[in-house]
């Protein structure tokens, strides 16, 4: 599986894809994109790395265990939902704050963004975990 072309391509594509996935996630609330696509593309970039260099290298690229990512993602999504509960509203009611950044304009931040981040992490963790589990089994053969 280790082809030089793939390895070279992966070296440049990996950061680009990773950046693209974050971009998709960030613009998701206003333009096409979002946590699902972002997470999936991030997972795809890691799997490209795994194909090119092998699963152990890909594991090193990812600073934490994919299974922990799932947990962090689920917790973030649940935390985003709990903000509404703490305000005495139904679970998952959104809350927004407007930040005035000098020289940058206005920035709206809300719990849906945190929720979407949770989705991003969970989808990334799930996909990578599944694929790497199967891939490692393949390599051990």
């Amino acid at each position: 599986m280790k082809s030089l072309i793939l390895q070279t391509a992966a070296r440049y594509l990996l950061p680009l894809l990773a950046l693209y996935s974050v971009l998709l996630f960030l613009q998701g609330h206003h333009d096409p994109g979002g946590g699902f696509v972002g997470g999936l593309i991030a997972a795809a970039s890691l799997m490209l790395c795994a194909l090119a260099y092998g699963v152990p290298v890909a594991r090193d690229v990812l600073p934490i265990q994919p299974r922990n990512l799932i947990g962090i993602g689920l917790l973030s999504a649940a935390a985003a939902g709990s903000v509404g509960t703490l305000q005495g509203k139904p679970f998952l009611t959104s809350a927004w704050v407007k930040l005035q950044l000098p020289g940058f304009g206005e920035l709206e931040l809300g719990t849906p963004l945190l929720f979407d981040a949770g989705v991003f992490l969970a989808v990334l963790g799930v996909t990578v975990s599944i694929l790497m589990t199967l891939a490692e089994e393949e390599e051990e053969e």
């Binding site: 989808v123 799930v126 599944i130 589990t133 199967l134």
Partner: peptide, 20 residues
């Protein structure tokens, strides 16, 4: 549908692992 696409990926992965 967006939800369904991702879920069916999970389902397929689970099925394949089961067959495996």
């Amino acid at each position: 549908i967006l939800t369904a696409i991702v879920i069916s990926f999970g389902l397929l992965a689970f099925t394949i692992a089961l067959i495996y």
